[in-house]
Structure formats: structure tokens, C-alpha cells
């Protein structure tokens, strides 16, 4: 019964969370209140952890909730059920798109969609910029990395690696007071 409940709850999150990542949050807090599979505090911890573990937040939280309630099988069920709706919906949409791709109205719509996608990504970046505690050294690190990116195109891993090491060094020397 628990497995079925896990499946239904996370399938529900997969169907109704528009906007990705943090859009799943209200649903996940709701589940915490209703089922006590994990506490709200654990969910908040999970969010912090998901920025240093691989993968999207939604997947991380689903895996965690499933695991704490009923072990590895629970983790598997919760993770699968949050993704399953995406799989079905994307399959339908891309089939429909392939059919109508040459239509000029569809083309115009998709082209506007791309601008909107770019705008949403910009908004995420701006919000992150204002919500992260950059301090002086963080700002310097940010600017240094940006300048490096202008000089030469580099692998994303480079930026993540450099910023992780810089964070460790700056933080350990207690320059930023975290």
C-alpha cells in the first residue's frame, strides 16, 4: 500500500509541477505535511544538499523521500514516478511537433518560445545573483571566472572545479565569514 501511495504522490508532483526545479517545492512540502515520509526540516536540508550532489532537485528529493520511507525499493518507485509523467508528455508533444514542424505558425510559435526560454533562464540567473551571499571574494571570483570565459571557451567542469576549490580555500581561511 505504501508503494502505491508513494507512486501516486510523486506521479502527482510530476504531472502538476510546471517550471521545473523549485516548482516542485510546494508539492514536496505538502507531501511532508500529509504523510510524514520526511520532515519539512529534512526537505530544507535536502535542498541545500542537492546543490552539491549531482542531479535535479526534484529527483534528489523524490529519491530521498522514497529511501527514508521504505529503502531502496521505495527510492526507486518515488524516482520513477516523478519522471514517468514527463516521459509520457514529452513523447506526445514531440510526436505532434514532428508532424507540424513545417507549419509556419508552429515555427513562429517555437521561435517565440525560445526567446521566452532565454528570458526565464536569465531570470533564474539574476535571482541567484541576488540570493547568494557573494561578499567581496565571491564577487571577485565571479568576475574572474567571467573574464576567463571571455578569453577562452572552456569546459563547464572547469568552472565548477575552480569555483569549488576557490570556495573551499576562501571559506577555510574564513575570509567570507560563513
Amino acid at each position: 500500500m505504501l508503494y502505491l501511495k508513494l507512486f501516486l504522490q510523486f506521479f502527482h508532483v510530476g504531472v502538476f509541477s510546471f517550471g521545473g526545479g523549485y516548482a516542485t517545492l510546494p508539492f514536496l512540502y505538502d507531501i511532508a505535511e500529509k504523510y510524514h515520509w520526511y520532515s519539512a526540516k529534512q526537505l530544507t536540508d535536502m535542498l541545500a544538499l542537492s546543490s552539491i550532489t549531482p542531479g535535479p532537485v526534484g529527483v534528489n528529493v523524490a529519491t530521498f523521500a522514497g529511501y527514508t520511507t521504505s529503502g531502496i525499493l521505495g527510492a526507486l518507485i518515488a524516482t520513477t514516478s516523478i519522471i514517468l509523467p514527463s516521459f509520457i508528455i514529452v513523447t506526445i508533444v514531440s510526436k505532434a511537433l514532428d508532424k507540424f514542424r513545417t507549419n509556419k505558425y508552429v515555427k513562429a510559435g517555437i521561435s517565440a518560445l525560445k526567446s521566452a526560454g532565454c528570458a526565464l533562464l536569465s531570470a533564474v540567473g539574476i535571482k541567484l545573483l541576488f540570493t547568494s551571499n557573494l561578499h567581496l571574494f565571491g564577487t571577485i571570483l565571479l568576475i574572474a571566472l567571467l573574464i576567463m570565459s571571455f578569453i577562452k571557451k572552456r569546459d563547464p567542469l572547469f568552472y565548477l572545479g575552480v569555483s569549488a576549490v576557490a570556495g573551499l580555500v576562501i571559506g577555510s581561511l574564513n575570509w567570507i565569514g560563513v
Binding site: A48, S51, I52, L128, S132, N133, L134, G138, L141, L142, L145, Y159, L160, G161, V162, S163, A164, V165, A166, G167, L168, I170, G171, S172, I176, V178
Partner: peptide, 10 residues
């Protein structure tokens, strides 16, 4: 600290 740094990389 690492988490703070990676946030900037992101």
C-alpha cells in the same frame, strides 16, 4: 564552503 563556491560557478 565548497557549496558556496559551486554556487558561484553555477
Amino acid at each position: 564552503h565548497i557549496f558556496w563556491g559551486v554556487g558561484i560557478g553555477v
